[in-house]
Amino acid sequence: MSSRFSSPCVISRRSLTGGLLAVALVWPVRAAEREGLQQVILGFTGGARPRPGRVTLDIPSLVENGNTVPVTIAVESPMSEADHVRGIALFNEKNPQPHVVTARFGPRSGRARLATRIRLATSQTLVAVAEMSDGTYWSDSAEVIVTLAACVEF
């Protein structure tokens, strides 16, 4: 994967300009990816900016195999008819698709907790957002380092 600059001993002027051009081309794409994550989160919340807190995103900080990563999302809530968690969504930063899972809850759920296993294409940040019955949004994020990526060949 990192063989783009594999032979740095002899750098010709052409390869140097080519390299700079490549960096210049890659940079805005990365910025656009971050923008995309924010856009997707705002799409879930309907434009509201989620506040940090109440949500616990539990994921190993160092992952050996990106093909199955256990993740648990829990939200503090009494889960009563008047005050419960309506939904939990998990988003990623650098997989080909920003969505991971969107779950819907109700007072019947008893507890706002979800555990699953996900794929991670590379080291990145994950964001969990919870929607409360009063219309507020809360979030938590976690940084994950992935040693062996899922779906290496895109």
Binding site: H99, R104, T116
Partner: peptide, 17 residues
Amino acid sequence: AELHQAIAANPFLEFSM
């Protein structure tokens, strides 16, 4: 739950009732 491509093979889900 809505699942996407980022869910691992043999989808596992744990929830409460």
